[in-house]
């Protein structure tokens, strides 16, 4: 299986501010009533975007820039801290990715969300608190401008500014070597897997 090597993502940025944004907010549970991930994109942040009266609410995903991102399937979401906490539903990163987001920049990410995103080839990089605030300010002042995430140099840049970014080494390696879907590597370990299985009394029947 050959996957694209993801070394750089350059795309228009959209800020979705707030800390502790959980996956129930990213994709409400009723949209998990499905047997495929198709169609989840349009429901990203549904209950934040649409009021109980069915009317649109002011939300970054309802903006013109978001519409452009959805059209081009190319966008960077700028988020806060502990983004993607709560439920392990892969439907959450799936919905953002299907909406059009190809990378995220934030203060920190919940682990399961981070792993799910990486396995989709969606890098989630973090900036320091101050740098993130600066990026946020920049994005809000210059809606729709491009932000570049460079996984080789490990930085994020926008306008004439560049900030130092972080991502766990293993995720970075997987993305830049085009092995972010781990299945090929895992399958290769077949004989070692069987050896481990044999060594575990509760597994070896």
């Amino acid at each position: 299986m050959s996957l694209a090597k993801i070394t750089q993502v350059k795309a228009p940025a959209l800020a979705v501010p707030g800390d502790d944004i959980d996956t129930d907010r990213i994709i409400p549970a009723r949209f998990l009533r499905c047997v495929t991930f198709e169609g989840l994109g349009e429901h990203a942040f549904r209950d934040e975007r649409t009021g109980p009266d069915g009317q649109d609410r002011p939300h970054p995903l309802n903006s013109e820039q978001a519409a452009q991102i959805a059209k081009d399937k190319k966008g960077v979401m700028v988020v806060g801290f502990n983004f993607g906490c709560g439920s392990s539903r892969e439907h959450a990163p799936q919905s953002l990715w299907r909406f059009g987001f190809t990378a995220l920049v934030g203060g920190s990410f919940a682990e399961i969300f981070f792993g799910n995103s990486t396995a989709l080839g969606v890098p989630c990089v973090t900036l320091s608190k101050d740098d993130l605030a600066e990026l946020n300010l920049f994005v809000q002042k210059n809606p729709g401008t491009e932000v570049a995430i460079d996984l080789e140099k490990m930085n994020v840049s926008a306008g004439d500014k560049t900030w130092k970014a972080s991502i766990p080494a293993s995720a970075r390696e997987s993305l830049i070597s085009g092995k972010w879907d781990p299945i090929a590597d895992l399958l290769e370990g077949s004989s070692a897997i069987e050896k481990t299985a044999q060594s575990l009394a509760y597994v070896a029947k």
Binding site: L32, A169, S170, E173, T196, Y202
Partner: peptide, 25 residues
């Protein structure tokens, strides 16, 4: 099981539980 090229561990999962929401895909 072994170390993977990305530096992570290939970890054996002895028991796997599934339910209707996160398994069909």
């Amino acid at each position: 099981v072994r170390q993977l090229p990305n530096g992570q561990t290939q970890l054996f999962i002895g028991t796997h539980l599934i339910h209707e929401v996160t398994s069909p895909q």
